[in-house]
Design a protein around this nucleic acid. Structure first.
Lengths: 238, 238
DNA sequence: TGGCATTTGTACGTATGTATA
DNA sequence: TTATACATACGTACAAATGCC
């Protein structure tokens, strides 16, 4: 006989509570002590259950504050000429971007290689957060060649849109020339931004965009909240 | 002051042990009791450290047996005309496939839709395991229209290669027409096959392959061991 | 086949540290 | 500053899976 562990039973109960809307996105769950009392178990058993929910990305604990319900899933189409803003609109959610930081500094070796620069050449680095319906779905970092795009930071600062900023700087169009994808565990910073816990699955995407002449104009890394996003690759380019 | 937790220190030490080859892939670590003794801490503290390593995919525990070191990373290029066998060879590892099961049954709604069939039409279902250097890197399920490919199971049983089996059944070439990618947490079965723990990040890929006339010939789901595989999308199709 | 030792998993208890509001 | 609430770490006991004999 393989008995179901108590913590699993509690985890399932809490999952149902969330699924059926008794706790909404952003809500705070009862404290561990309260949950332990109501289920008649030790607090550690509740912690084990909450750890499971956190691992699944359903909740994220914040020390000293409480345990909060995370966001639900989104669909995220990606194609050769698909841009972020259009993507989210297509899935019926309201998109958004938040600038986290915007600096100009020397390129490291990897960045230089990706952008066809020499290490040490100046690059603009744009760190930001992508939102859908106000919920964070991705953190990204875009690196641009500063010599070629001197006015980019001002253009980016206005509304955060990479496409629009590039257009204003004379890059009317661009195409993805390479993408690498991996599933990884979220680190502490990513987890914080994406309302996940450390260790939740995230989708790493590292890509290079180039102008029509094939010159790289952006080296971008994006970390998607794994269970909240599906990338759709349509071979719709002819 | 923010002191480093003991469990984190132990986790780092064990990570170094593995990185520097003191424990090789497939090796069993000392027991929790032994580790607790050598580090002079409670067994629970060691367990917390091991849980962290397991979460990162470095080790995987087996109740009653011990804690084992998992496999290291592989690169996995994917493109329109790239096939599995070629992929792994390109990264310098010896590829392999293991048939887990091979049955013929009625198609469910999703499978029927993907393959342009009616629900209930017969399909061949091929469950298998992909290996690199003998280490599991992916579990997959491929679904084929049985009416169109009556002799496929025999062809597949011989060496497991989908491309070769399809060729023998008259499909000389095929192309990926859609792909959906998500990062998820491994379930118990996937974890067992891939030598991961439940909850480790895995990359879900769901795709449809069609013959040159555009008729679907395969509906495939693949679950990659997230931190062991990188998908590379080269836009190398002209 | 069955039994036994080993090893990980679950569950309890208690105390103290640390981040947040 | 204080109270709250999650995090770490100690301890103990027993359950469950594995592997060997």
């Amino acid at each position: 006989m393989s008995q179901t562990p108590i913590w699993k039973t509690i985890a399932l109960a809490l999952t149902a509570d969330i699924a059926e809307g008794r706790f909404a996105t952003g809500d705070r769950l009862p404290t561990e002590a309260q949950l332990a009392a109501t289920h008649g178990v030790n607090r550690h058993t509740v912690r084990r259950a909450l750890a499971e929910l956190a691992r699944q990305g359903l909740v994220h604990p914040r020390r000293g504050a409480g345990v909060f319900v995370s966001a639900a899933a989104t669909d995220y189409p990606i194609g050769k000429r698909v841009r972020y803003h259009q993507n989210i609109s297509a899935s019926g959610k309201i998109p958004g971007k938040r600038v986290l930081s915007l600096i100009t500094r020397a390129a490291d070796k990897t960045e230089a290689e990706a952008l066809n620069l020499a290490p040490g050449d100046p690059v603009h680095v744009y760190d930001g957060l992508s939102l859908a319906d106000g919920q964070p779905i991705a953190v990204f970092q875009s690196v641009f060649p500063a010599a070629r795009l001197p006015d980019l930071p001002e253009a980016l600062a206005e509304n955060g849109s990479v496409t629009r900023a590039l257009r204003r700087c004379g890059v009317a169009d661009y195409t993805r020339i390479s993408t690498r994808l991996t599933a990884r565990a979220a680190d502490a910073v990513q987890a914080r931004h994406l309302h996940l816990i450390e260790g939740a699955p995230v989708l790493h995407s590292v890509g290079i965009n180039a102008d029509p002449q094939g010159h790289p104009v952006e080296y971008g890394k994006t970390v998607f909240a794994g269970e909240r996003v599906t990338l759709t690759l349509d071979d719709d380019h002819g």
